[in-house]
């Protein structure tokens, strides 16, 4: 798909992380960016977008969050057939290999360990969105 047209959801309880990724997305020309503070809010936003037939193209999701963790949100999304293809990139300060394996087993598209830099995030976005089919025009 055309990268600047992507609709992206950032799910993280820390505004600094959301702001960092948002700045990187803006540098890539992406402006359709939405934010959620925890997994439950993120899930609700994904479901609402899906029901309005305006689905997200990519999600960046923190691991440790209040109300609903990132891994629980990931499992929930992957269990819903209408959203199961949605690419989700897990973002976390937890570097244990077991976490990476768990995330990938649960269907995460990729994994980013904090601290991250612009080049790492940009590369992942470009790689994932290049594989995403172009959005059908309304």
């Amino acid at each position: 798909m055309n990268i600047p047209e992507a609709k992206i959801l950032l799910v993280d309880d820390f505004s600094m992380v959301r702001a960092s990724i948002k700045n990187i997305l803006k540098d890539l020309g992406i402006t359709n960016i939405h934010e959620a503070k925890d997994g439950q809010q993120g899930l609700d936003m994904l479901a609402e977008a899906q029901s309005k037939k305006e689905p997200f193209d990519l999600v960046f999701c923190d691991w440790n969050m209040p109300n609903m963790s990132g891994i629980d949100m990931l499992k929930e999304v992957k269990s819903r057939p209408e959203m199961s293809d949605l690419p989700i990139v897990m973002v976390t300060a937890e570097r244990d290999r077991a976490n990476v394996v768990q995330a990938l087993k649960q269907g995460a598209k990729d994994y980013v360990v904090k601290p991250f830099n612009k080049a790492q995030i940009s590369k992942k976005i470009e790689r994932i969105l290049m594989q995403t089919p172009a959005r059908a025009s309304a």
Partner: peptide, 29 residues
């Protein structure tokens, strides 16, 4: 970090110092 002017210790500043501590500790751990 934010690419925006931050001039007071508000929720955003508190949040950021918490996350900075968390990220550095992830590496330290």
């Amino acid at each position: 970090f934010y690419s925006k002017d931050i001039k007071k210790i508000d929720d955003r500043a508190i949040d950021s110092v918490a996350e900075l501590t968390n990220v550095v500790y992830g590496l330290l751990k």
